[in-house]
Design a protein around this nucleic acid. Structure first.
Lengths: 368, 368
DNA sequence: ATGAAAGCGCTAACAC
DNA sequence: GTGTTAGCGCTTTCAT
């Protein structure tokens, strides 16, 4: 082994440091630093020599050293609630696809709604010196906010956050998307529409439920209390909630779910209780995860685009981190939503208009 | 603002450094360092004073500085192929749940089978000075290996890797699980069993296919070439491959898929072509992702436990990183697999044994 | 057992 | 424009 010290320590020195490059390019280390960091005042001739030396030596700047002295780690935190909920990997992916080319590394953490994990997650992020954190948990635990806000560093929240100078907020248009969904169902003739919520501690969950109730009220449709079932944004909870709704004296003709995982659970519960979707009951989700279109039947759902969300989060974060950022003064980003109609929603059972029924019969005849 | 310099630079100094603690505890910074790192030679009395000062000041060691001088970042890389394939978030989660309490931060990256992304991913990991990398892509691109192996640092691969001192391998027992699946189907009476592969560049994909062919040969069942359809471990490819199989003059009575996403796609294609699962055709997956049990019908699949995989990966990595690790000499870890029977597999169509048929009829009568 | 001091690799202030 | 130099916060010799 080429290690000079017969030390048992696994101490690895940089293969090639800024000094090696400086020596080779016959300039000072400061010039190398400037050239590598593209400071404009460097003589082009010298810069070329530096880059050549960098090339030849295979020099890679040491991030730790850089972060230590500059005070900026170029690391940003991304906190999600559950990495195993398919919505979040999609979000993480988009977030990284944007952040990395812009020069930031992403440190992802999921809270799993566990205060202990959250606590340690924040400590770990602070310890790694993140430049800022995007909290995309859709309903932040108070404790988390408090801990984060203490350090006055750049923070991005979804929906709402404390009104402080370094905090930016992504406002999702829940009302718009859910209203579209309700109006879609109402236009098809539905009047008995149920709703399955997520965990109500989350702001965004309450917002979705309220958007549903408001949209229904707008249309003058009453929502009996038992038509609002409580879920937890998981398949399991969606199943349970749907079974509850199915046990009602009269099955609703449609159900709107607070997210797609809930809707998938509902679909499953309906299959188990031998109710056919959408013939007997229409199901609408929220999020439009990739999986949604592969459900049986493909899920009608309100799309909240990961891409939009990720782009806004990265931009908002940079606006907070970089003093000269063009949007440094902006505090709010709007996130649109829109209904995507697929096959899990149709006319209420027994009301299929004659002309459509004819067509359906013809279709069925072909298939059999 | 409390920033002393009216500098536009966002330079944040540590709120409290080792020096502050040393001053407060009236010891040298070296003693603080030793106490904090639990070096045994420190006088318990002084150590107590140090910890008290740490407590009072809220001191948190600066990871960057620590990494810079010690040469160990306590950061390990985890490379997966596709973070949006539900198997991987589950793996990532388990991996972190193990690594973090053991003092390591995890840097996750997904290659998306894109050499460009892979290249930059590796550069980023090297730049952040990872102590080691686990490559869990299930079929490594050669280029990736080469780049990684150049630096002689700890590496863990799945299935196979170059035989070098710092490289450890996780051997998954594909043959065992797939043989169980084939024997399960054969025992039910299936003789016409098809297989949908993943992308064949991957070693593990070839291993699965070969395991299937071997298991079939063992039972003396021939597999016509057109019964091996090529997929890509995605739902879309599973659908396409299944449609291909469904277009055959005679539909196979069962199909084994190289992973669960493929199986889900197959389920979907069968629904679209109005074939009922498992009545007309049995479907078996591989992985046992969380979603598998929520499919309609719940998927029979070969479980490859994320937890086993993650535990082995973390242990193997530490064995490579830490010179004194008890398993420092071990080079191979075995990962078991086993069949989980659910409702997507049953007797071949038209052969339902009489007694079972009776029971099934009774069951159906109850449901209607 | 403890402290003083020498860097780890780099950036940024300052001098020229 | 370029080089010199002083640290960033910490670990680790080396004396004591």
């Amino acid at each position: 082994m080429s290690r000079s010290k017969s030390n048992t320590q696994n101490r690895r020195r940089a293969l090639v440091s800024i000094r090696d490059v400086a020596r080779r390019a016959r300039v000072s280390i400061a010039t190398v630093s400037r050239a590598v960091n593209r400071v404009s005042s460097v003589d082009p001739e010298l810069a070329k020599r530096v880059w050549k030396a960098v090339e030849e030596t295979g020099y890679v700047p040491n991030t730790q050293a850089r972060a230590l002295v500059s005070g900026r780690s170029h690391l940003i935190g991304l906190i999600v609630s559950e990495i195993t909920n398919p919505f979040f990997p999609e979000l993480v992916q988009e977030f990284e696809n944007l952040a990395v080319p812009q020069g930031y590394e992403v440190m992802v953490g999921s809270t799993n709604y566990d205060p202990g994990k959250t606590e340690s997650l924040i400590r770990r992020m602070l310890q790694r010196n993140v430049d800022g954190v995007a909290v995309m948990t859709f309903g932040v635990e108070e404790e988390l906010v408090r801990r984060l806000v203490e350090r006055e560093f750049p923070l991005v929240f979804v929906d709402a956050g404390p009104d402080l100078p370094n905090i930016r907020v992504l406002k999702v248009n829940y009302a718009g998307g859910i209203r579209e969904a309700v109006q879609h169902l109402a236009a098809l003739g539905h009047r008995s529409i149920a709703f399955i919520t997520g965990p109500l501690q989350m702001r965004s969950v309450v917002a979705r439920r309220d958007a549903f109730l408001t949209s229904m009220a707008e249309l003058g449709i009453e929502v009996p209390a038992e038509h609002v079932a409580i879920g937890a944004h998981t398949m399991e909870s969606g199943m349970a909630a749907m079974e509850q709704l199915a046990a009602l004296p009269e099955l609703p003709t449609a159900v709107v779910c607070s997210n797609d995982m809930t809707a998938i659970g509902a679909l499953h519960a309906l299959e188990r209780t031998t109710h056919s979707v959408p013939k007997e009951i229409s199901v609408v989700g929220f999020d439009d995860i990739h999986l949604a279109q592969f459900m049986l039947p493909p899920l009608t759902t309100v799309r909240m685009s990961c891409k939009d969300l990720a782009a806004a989060a990265v931009e908002a974060l940079r606006a907070g981190i970089e003093p000269e950022h063009p949007k440094a003064g902006v505090k709010e980003w709007q996130i649109p939503t829109r209904l995507v109609v697929r096959q899990s929603s149709t006319f209420p059972r027994g009301t299929l208009p004659a002309i459509v029924k004819q067509a359906a019969d013809r279709h069925r005849a072909v298939r059999v």
